[in-house]
Simulated scan of single mutants.
Amino acid sequence: MTTVEQKNPSSGYAMTTLPNEYGLMGAEGIGDLVKRATSHAPIATYVEEPEPPISWSAIADAGWDLAGIVEDDTCASTRDLVAIAKAWGYGSIPQPLLPSLLAKRLAAAAREVDGPVTFALPLGDGALVPFGAVDGIVVATALGDIEGEVTGAPAGEVDGLDLVGRGIHAPTATRFTAEAAREVALVLAAEVLGGAERLLADSLSFVNEREQFGRPVGSFQAVKHNLATATVDVEAADTALIWGSQQEANAFRGALFAVDRCIDAAEIAVHVHGGLGFTWEVGLHFPLRKMLSVRRIIDRLERNHS
């Protein structure tokens, strides 16, 4: 992507479409980790296995859960976190990297924890604790410049929508400052953007291999048009997250727009797979269900913090 700078009238600083070196290196490192761990095998082959393809120790030993912490007045910007989250989302790995990264960035109590940390996201009738079903995980009670602590994950019903997130339902949400809520929304949306990019890549591979009437189905004009539309959706989502990450007044708007475009792209991916797209074994539903879950969470965050 070509760097494009423009003046932000509300703050006076120059914006760029690209993350800084921190974000570029982080996204590259995470992308390489995901690629080596999964070899881009179908998501369905590993997402429900008892042991994820990337262990928590591999994440912690490399310090990825600490990637957002401020040290010596330098740290990843929100734009950098968007790039890192997108690279992580491409793999649909059932590990609490992003909740831990955000919690340790935004809560002093969470930074004292060696293991994984998560938080409780608001829903209309309670909260959702991403990876609350993971053994040994703790929950930050507040994110942002407000006092909080970490507690054990509450007992609750397992979430049936986001199967990658392995969440549980809880009665009380974590308290967020408006700034923290915006950053969480953008990172969650960037994660599902990575999933949308994965579904698009899988769809392109599928239509070039699948044949009908002696020709790859990707050669049919209707299929080309659908995939072109999905490509535009994914690019629009990416642009919206860049915009939202650098203009805080538009953070929720950009995140919601991005997730909606990702859902559109995912639905096209299911469609171009034909009847196979609806089967559990193909696994297209794993990123799609996460998108639907994130959509409702960001909507609630915006309601609570606009």
Results as ranks from 00 to 15, higher is better:
170 A>P: 03
139 V>G: 01
23 G>R: 03
15 M>I: 07
104 K>D: 00
80 D>R: 08
40 H>M: 09
225 H>Y: 09
268 I>D: 00
3 T>M: 07
76 A>F: 13
79 R>K: 15
99 P>F: 01
77 S>V: 06
67 A>Y: 07
246 Q>L: 10
117 V>N: 01
183 E>D: 13
290 K>D: 05
46 Y>S: 03
127 A>R: 02
39 S>Y: 09
250 N>D: 14
253 R>G: 12
29 G>P: 05
297 I>L: 15
51 E>L: 04
267 E>C: 10
50 P>L: 01
74 T>E: 14
204 L>A: 12
234 V>M: 08
233 D>P: 07
286 F>P: 01
199 L>G: 08
27 A>N: 03
200 L>Q: 14
271 H>F: 12
99 P>W: 00
295 R>F: 10
277 G>Y: 04
196 A>F: 04
254 G>C: 08
67 A>I: 11
274 G>Q: 06
223 V>C: 09
36 R>A: 10
277 G>F: 05
116 P>S: 10
90 Y>V: 11
240 A>P: 06
13 Y>L: 13
107 A>M: 02
258 A>Y: 11
213 F>E: 15
185 A>I: 09
302 E>A: 12
224 K>P: 08
246 Q>N: 10
210 R>Q: 15
213 F>K: 07
119 F>A: 01
123 L>R: 08
301 L>K: 02
191 E>S: 02
35 K>I: 10
64 W>P: 02
100 S>M: 07
231 T>A: 13
88 W>M: 06
210 R>G: 10
63 G>W: 03
127 A>W: 00
103 A>N: 02
155 A>K: 13
294 V>L: 13
75 C>M: 14
154 P>K: 02
174 T>A: 01
118 T>V: 04
88 W>K: 05
266 A>E: 13
139 V>S: 00
163 L>Y: 01
193 L>A: 12
41 A>H: 11
29 G>I: 04
222 A>H: 13
301 L>V: 04
147 E>S: 14
128 L>S: 00
158 V>G: 04
105 R>T: 09
97 L>T: 06
306 S>D: 15
84 I>Q: 01
130 P>C: 01
47 V>Q: 03
173 A>E: 00
286 F>S: 03
287 P>R: 07
97 L>E: 08
261 R>A: 15
179 E>N: 11
268 I>S: 02
11 S>N: 15
20 N>E: 08
186 L>Y: 09
259 V>E: 13
148 G>S: 06
261 R>W: 08
30 I>V: 13
